[in-house]
Nucleic acid binder design. Structure first.
Length: 420
DNA sequence: TCTGGGGTCCTAGGACCC
DNA sequence: TCTGGGGTCCTAGGACCC
């Protein structure tokens, strides 16, 4: 059996922990640049706000009706997430952290010596009491079914936030009420295709022979079908495992034409990406840079331009990554367009130990580079000072909007909550 | 005026090999 | 008219996830 624990309206709930006055008020959290609504408290959902909706479309009406809004505060959310995961790890060490706000627990080692109902409410209450975050829990024989159970636990208040699917007959009865598009792993495209074939609900899909699905669609869908039938076969990639790529990209506060300002943004993102890479203990060999116009603006000429370069030595040196990113920018920049976003992707990682030395290029001293970067990181992480590289720029012309951010209550001493 | 950011896995098809 | 048969590796792009 698997349990899926998923935090309710996670970002909005984080904002409420240190603001008890917001209890029972509609709360939403916006994406970067204060662009879209990405988290809504149940009160905000009731007001009709949709996930991913552009903020400017709903702003006036929402605020006029007493809604509360925050820019995203990832430092806070990451810290609260860690607390939640720590509580869960204590309850069940076989944890598989799937995203910032959800985790699977593998309960198989408990055999049958566990009261699932009791366990579910223990989880729920402990996270609420110790961290202050409300969660929903779904328990079922496979991850896909646990996902579905969790969904019902969230949506139907009669279940008090926990749904356990165990009995085969009950599962089948339940699957009948589930639309195809709500199954984990089936998106827009697949559900449209399946609907065309007359498959409307999860029970119907589970009744198709998995092999037939496998040869006519893909192994991905085949696994989903097997999971619906109760055969566990989907592993998730644990967040604790090393990453395979690192991306840093941002929309600009306003559109940009000049190559010089674009260069600052690309350098800035490249520096951030290099930092993340070092934090992962990895080195990369491939660097990709892209710049693009605003695809929503139909008035302007559209452009998406990108390219990549391979470097000889796997590296995590900010100087090399920034320099390479700028070389790529030179290649992909086209005059006369309005750019609204730039980004960098690092890939082709080699773990720190045991990367390929180059026989012909002895000029690069990787120990010196590692030492320098370690020193830079040391200074920046501890807020002793803030070291950055010249071409990362000091102008703020391209930086994003984030006007209504809450305090970093748990990670900055100067922003700690105060009572009077 | 104003529409996020960061990931993973799978597959088809090209390049190349014997 | 008629032009082998397997393989492997890599990459771009699709689909999906939160």
């Amino acid at each position: 059996m698997y349990a899926l624990i998923d935090c309710n309206s996670f970002y909005a709930s984080c904002e409420r922990i240190f603001r008890p006055d917001l209890k029972n008020h509609p709360v939403v959290v916006l994406s970067n640049n204060d662009g879209c609504v990405i988290a809504r408290s149940s009160e905000a959902k009731k007001m009709g706000l949709i996930m991913g909706q552009p903020w400017y479309q709903v702003k006036k009406n929402y605020l006029d009706n007493g809604g509360i809004v925050f820019s995203s505060n990832y430092e806070l959310y990451a810290d609260i997430s860690n607390r939640v995961m720590n509580v869960l790890t204590e309850l069940c060490p076989e944890i598989d952290i799937y995203s910032i706000d959800e985790a699977f627990l593998n309960l198989s080692s408990y055999k049958n010596n566990i009261n699932l109902v009791q366990f579910a409410f223990d989880c729920k209450n402990r996270i609420k009491d110790w961290v202050g975050i409300p969660v929903s829990i779904g328990i079922a024989p496979t991850r896909t079914l646990a996902k579905l159970a969790n969904r019902v636990a969230k949506e139907d208040s009669r279940f008090d936030g926990a749904v356990i699917l165990k009995d085969k007959k009950i599962i089948q009865h339940f699957l009948k009420s589930v639309e195809i598009k709500n199954i984990w792993g089936i998106g827009k495209r697949m559900s449209a295709k399946l609907n065309d074939l007359g498959i409307q609900n999860a029970l119907q899909l589970s009744e198709v022979n998995p092999r037939t699905i496998g040869s006519n669609f893909s192994v991905v869908l085949e696994r989903t079908v097997r999971e619906l039938r109760g055969q566990a076969c989907i592993e998730t990639n644990n967040l604790l495992e090393p990453k395979k790529q690192i991306m840093v990209s941002r929309s600009f506060g306003r559109s940009i034409k000049s190559k010089e300002i674009l260069r600052e943004a690309v350098s800035f993102h490249a520096g951030r990406a290099a930092e993340k890479l070092r934090f992962e203990g990895q080195k990369c060999r491939t660097i990709t840079v892209f710049i693009r116009s605003n695809p929503f603006n139909k008035q302007i000429r559209q452009i998406y331009s990108s390219d990549f370069m391979e470097i000889i030595h796997a590296t995590s040196d900010s100087r090399i990554i920034i320099k390479t990113a700028n070389k790529i920018l030179e290649k992909i920049y086209r005059e006369g367009f309005e750019y609204s976003k730039a980004g960098i992707l690092l890939s082709n990682f080699t773990e720190k130990l045991g990367y390929q030395m180059n026989l012909f290029d002895k000029s690069f001293d990787s120990k010196k580079s590692d030492d320098l970067m370690r020193t830079v990181d040391y200074i920046n992480i501890r807020d002793i000072s803030n070291i950055f590289f010249g071409n990362q720029g000091y102008r703020n012309t391209w930086k994003m909007k984030r006007q209504i951010k809450s305090k970093r209550y748990t990670t900055r001493i100067e922003e700690i909550p105060v009572t009077r």
